[in-house]
Amino acid sequence: MYWFSCYAMLSILFICTNNAGRSQLAEAICNHEFADSFKALSAGARATQVSAELYQYFQQHELQASHQTSKALESLPAQKFDYVITLCSEAKQECLSLPDSPGVLHWELPSTRDEQGQPRFDDIAALLRQQLKRLQTYIQQRPQSLEPLQVFKLLSDETRLQIMMLIEDEQRLSVNELCQALAESQPKTSRHLALLRESGLLSTTRHGQQIFYHLPDCHDAWVAKVLATTRIANPSLINLPLLRLRELRLQLANQES
Results as ranks from 00 to 15, higher is better:
residue 1 M to Q: 12
residue 9 M to E: 08
residue 10 L to S: 12
residue 10 L to N: 10
residue 11 S to A: 14
residue 14 F to R: 03
residue 16 C to T: 09
residue 18 N to R: 08
residue 19 N to R: 06
residue 21 G to F: 03
residue 22 R to L: 03
residue 23 S to Y: 09
residue 31 N to C: 05
residue 36 D to W: 00
residue 36 D to G: 06
residue 39 K to P: 00
residue 45 A to H: 10
residue 46 R to M: 08
residue 47 A to R: 09
residue 54 L to M: 13
residue 57 Y to W: 09
residue 59 Q to F: 02
residue 64 Q to N: 15
residue 65 A to I: 00
residue 66 S to T: 12
residue 68 Q to S: 08
residue 71 K to H: 11
residue 82 D to M: 11
residue 83 Y to G: 03
residue 86 T to H: 04
residue 86 T to Q: 02
residue 88 C to T: 09
residue 91 A to H: 00
residue 92 K to P: 01
residue 94 E to T: 07
residue 96 L to G: 13
residue 99 P to I: 03
residue 102 P to I: 11
residue 103 G to T: 10
residue 109 L to T: 00
residue 111 S to A: 12
residue 117 G to N: 05
residue 123 D to N: 03
residue 126 A to W: 01
residue 131 Q to G: 01
residue 134 R to M: 09
residue 135 L to C: 07
residue 137 T to C: 05
residue 144 Q to K: 12
residue 146 L to F: 03
residue 153 K to H: 14
residue 153 K to R: 11
residue 160 R to K: 13
residue 164 M to Y: 06
residue 167 I to S: 05
residue 168 E to I: 00
residue 169 D to Y: 07
residue 170 E to S: 13
residue 172 R to S: 14
residue 173 L to C: 12
residue 177 E to G: 11
residue 179 C to L: 06
residue 187 P to M: 06
residue 187 P to D: 11
residue 188 K to S: 15
residue 195 L to H: 07
residue 198 E to H: 03
residue 201 L to P: 00
residue 203 S to L: 04
residue 204 T to Y: 12
residue 206 R to K: 15
residue 208 G to N: 06
residue 211 I to P: 01
residue 212 F to E: 07
residue 212 F to W: 15
residue 212 F to S: 04
residue 212 F to P: 01
residue 221 A to G: 07
residue 222 W to M: 14
residue 222 W to H: 09
residue 228 A to D: 12
residue 229 T to M: 11
residue 231 R to Y: 05
residue 234 N to E: 14
residue 234 N to R: 10
residue 242 L to N: 13
residue 243 L to R: 13
residue 248 L to E: 07
residue 253 A to M: 09
residue 254 N to P: 00
residue 255 Q to Y: 11
residue 256 E to S: 12
